[in-house]
Write a protein that binds this DNA or RNA. Sequence first.
DNA 1: TTATGTGCAAAATATTTGCTTTCCG
DNA 2: CGGAAAGCAAATATTTTGCACATAA
Lengths: 142, 142
Amino acid sequence: MKPKGFQELQEAFKDQGMRLTYQRKVILDILRGTKSHPSAEMVYASAKRRIPNVSLGTVYRNLNVLKGCGMIQELDFGSSVSRYDANTSHHYHVRCIRCDKVEDVDLSTVAGLDRQVEDCMGYRAVTHRVEFQGVCPECWKG
Amino acid sequence: MKPKGFQELQEAFKDQGMRLTYQRKVILDILRGTKSHPSAEMVYASAKRRIPNVSLGTVYRNLNVLKGCGMIQELDFGSSVSRYDANTSHHYHVRCIRCDKVEDVDLSTVAGLDRQVEDCMGYRAVTHRVEFQGVCPECWKG
DNA sequence: TTATGTGCAAAATATTTGCTTTCCG
DNA sequence: CGGAAAGCAAATATTTTGCACATAA
């Protein structure tokens, strides 16, 4: 379901009339290879090491494309910058309010909440997102 | 606890070395008088009806001041604009992905979640925020 | 009186877009 | 070859800030 090889990846894009460019692959690889939930700027910095003349616009465009394909998800935290995650399963995040680190929360997503909102508010196709924030161990120990 | 009269409001600000200006009061009144969770622009538009030459900068500055005093809270949704709420109790929100309306969710906040994250992740002073999103009745009926 | 706040405009931040050139398929 | 994508820069959108003047206490 999550294509790994170049071949499968290429096909996955082709089905949607899109190409697998080198830039696109690098950006996806970066996200798949980290758990740090990087921002667009961070992805850009990382991509630049492999493609020195890559542009920030290309990074943003590809992040949006990958999001559109459901290959990555965008995390919108209180902070003004979006962060991206190649783990598209429904899981929660904690953000440290001091160092701005974002980590996955190992907590089973609270089941049935979406359904409750659909029932009591009359909404449809409801999803939800939970963001925890606090001070991480490194920050409060140091 | 939530000062209403001019007198008490004035004192509440004074304690923090702040003044109760007309602009500040109008902005707070606007937020206290609506359940629509307006954005800064919306507050600005509303304030302008009462203070024709009020500036957007003043609105932003006061929203931040009021937030700092804990008199209002800022809601950061996936969308790129912040919205503001004079109801500072811990409650959840739903946003309609079609018309962008934001409503309170009548659901008791899931207790104990913050504590669980503190225990299993080692964080401190954890709070959380839940945002539901879906299609509101008006949008899917129409 | 005087420090805090306002209005205005310019700056800062984050992201998107137009256009020409490049390159995937 | 033809259309999708890249690179670059200019444009947007939202929020913040510097400064001279006004005002609450």
